[in-house]
Computed example of a mutant assay.
Amino acid sequence: MSPMLVDADAIRALADILTETGLTEIEVAEGDSRIRVARGGTVTQVAATPFAAAPAAVPVAAAADVANHPGTVTSPMVGVAYLTPDPSSAPFVTEGQSVAAGQTIMLIEAMKTFNQIKAPRAGKVVRILIASGDPVEYGEPLAIIE
C-alpha cells in the first residue's frame, strides 16, 4: 500500500469548523481515503487513513474508558449543558457528592427549552465530564455516578 499524502489545508479547515461549531469531531471521505479530526480536551487530534486500512489508532483511551463505564450518564440530546439552574446559583451537584435516583444533576438547553438531566441511580458523583456552557452531543458522556 502506498503512503497517503495528507492535505494540511484540509485538516486546518476541518479544525476551524470544529472550533466554529463546537463539535467534537468531524470526518470527511473522498475516494479511498478519509480524514477525521477530533477534539479531545484542549488538543486537536488528526487521523488520515485509507478506507481499506484499519481504523485510525488515535482514539483517546480515557474517553473510551469513560464511555464504557457502567455509571456514565450520557446526553439524551444535542444542546448546551448547564451545571447550575442560573448563573448566580450553586451547581446542582459537585464531584464527591451523593445523589439520589431521579435527582437533577444538570440541564441541557435544546431549542430554547431547559431539560433536566436526572441521576439514573443513587450513588456518588465521581466525575463531571463537561463544564457549564459546553455544547454536548447525543450520547456524549456527561458525568460518572458510582
Rank of each mutant, 00 (worst) to 15 (best):
121 R>A: 15
97 Q>G: 07
35 I>H: 10
29 A>I: 03
32 D>P: 11
32 D>S: 13
125 V>H: 08
144 I>Q: 11
107 L>H: 02
101 A>F: 03
56 A>K: 02
62 A>G: 05
80 V>Y: 01
103 Q>P: 00
12 R>D: 10
110 A>F: 03
41 G>H: 14
109 E>C: 00
87 P>S: 08
71 G>N: 02
67 A>S: 06
115 N>Y: 15
83 L>Y: 03
79 G>N: 03
123 G>W: 03
57 A>M: 09
14 L>C: 05
107 L>W: 02
131 A>R: 14
82 Y>G: 01
84 T>L: 01
4 M>A: 14
78 V>R: 04
42 T>S: 12
125 V>C: 10
72 T>Y: 09
133 G>Y: 11
69 H>R: 07
132 S>P: 11
32 D>E: 15
47 A>E: 11
35 I>V: 15
92 F>P: 05
134 D>C: 14
30 E>R: 13
94 T>M: 06
15 A>M: 01
59 P>C: 03
136 V>I: 12
1 M>R: 14
111 M>Y: 10
44 T>S: 06
136 V>E: 08
132 S>A: 11
138 Y>W: 08
77 M>L: 08
44 T>E: 07
75 S>K: 05
104 T>Y: 04
130 I>P: 12
75 S>L: 04
6 V>D: 00
116 Q>C: 04
121 R>S: 15
90 A>E: 15
5 L>F: 04
91 P>T: 04
127 R>E: 09
53 A>E: 06
138 Y>T: 01
23 L>V: 10
146 E>S: 12
61 A>F: 10
48 A>D: 06
126 V>P: 07
74 T>E: 14
127 R>V: 01
34 R>Q: 14
106 M>A: 00
101 A>P: 04
31 G>Y: 00
110 A>L: 05
36 R>Y: 03
24 T>Y: 11
127 R>I: 01
63 A>N: 10
142 L>M: 09
141 P>T: 02
44 T>A: 05
79 G>V: 04
46 V>I: 09
66 V>T: 10
86 D>G: 08
85 P>S: 04
111 M>E: 09
1 M>V: 11
78 V>E: 01
99 V>S: 07
110 A>H: 07
117 I>G: 04
53 A>C: 01
125 V>A: 10
118 K>T: 01
8 A>S: 07
141 P>E: 03
118 K>P: 00
16 D>W: 06
20 E>L: 14
89 S>G: 09
110 A>W: 04
114 F>E: 01
136 V>C: 09
14 L>G: 00
89 S>M: 11
